[in-house]
């Protein structure tokens, strides 16, 4: 369990009138929390949500009965964008068993950054399918680990079966400047998408 934080909360400026959110998603261990931490102006925070999932096909490998309670840890951070607007970044688990939480998380999100580890592409198939199904604007961001092989973009695109409009970005998420550029590139992609629709 996570204990309640005893530190004084870092309050927003009183002039802020509203907030937006962007999801950072991907498989376990891909670097979601690291990216949120690199971008956030506050120490990243964590909440735990309890989900009850019923049924066939969910969590078969555990051999548990058909009803299971799962605790999901959500790590998130914040950026104050201006005197009137704040941005929240939610690290969102991409595994299928956490999908019940997605409805709440994705409602109103500007979009999602899907972090991918190119050494374990198959672990991202689930979450990419979900993003496509829910029509959430998203970009793929390949997290560059020290031993990450440099795949040509076309090869990655084919392996991930991405639609042409989905950009593939690259980032070492531990690097704050690189993470910041990634976020700007992603929001610029959202802008182009909104421009085409308007």
């Amino acid at each position: 369990m996570v204990s309640a934080s005893s530190a004084e909360p870092a309050y927003l400026p009183s002039s802020v009138q509203g907030a937006v959110k962007i999801l950072v998603t991907g498989p376990f261990g891909v670097g979601k929390t690291t990216l949120v931490g690199a971008l956030s102006e506050i120490d990243p925070l964590r909440t735990e949500e309890t989900m009850t999932s019923v049924g066939e096909g969910v969590d078969d490998v555990t051999g548990r009965p058909h009803k299971a309670t799962t605790t999901v840890a959500l790590d998130f951070g914040r950026i104050t964008l201006s005197s009137r607007l704040a941005l929240y970044l939610f690290g969102t688990p991409g595994q299928q068993r956490f999908w019940p939480l997605w409805e709440d998380l994705s409602r109103g999100a500007l979009g999602a950054i899907a972090l991918v580890d190119s050494r374990r592409l198959e672990e991202s198939f689930d979450v990419l399918g979900l993003l496509e199904e829910q029509r959430i604007p998203f970009a793929v961001a390949v997290n560059v680990f020290p031993d990450t092989p440099a795949y040509p973009e076309a090869e990655l695109r084919t392996a991930l079966d991405l639609l042409p409009g989905v950009p593939i970005l690259t980032c070492d998420v531990r690097d704050e400047d690189a993470a910041h550029r990634l976020l700007i590139d992603f929001v610029d992609h959202l802008r182009v998408g909104a421009l085409e629709l308007s």
Partner: peptide
């Protein structure tokens, strides 16, 4: 007493957002 999001208040108080 000052401005915070639902998620932040939940995290600081150790409660699920729901």
């Amino acid at each position: 007493r000052e401005l915070l999001s639902v998620a932040e208040v939940a995290a600081h108080l150790g409660l699920p957002i729901s």
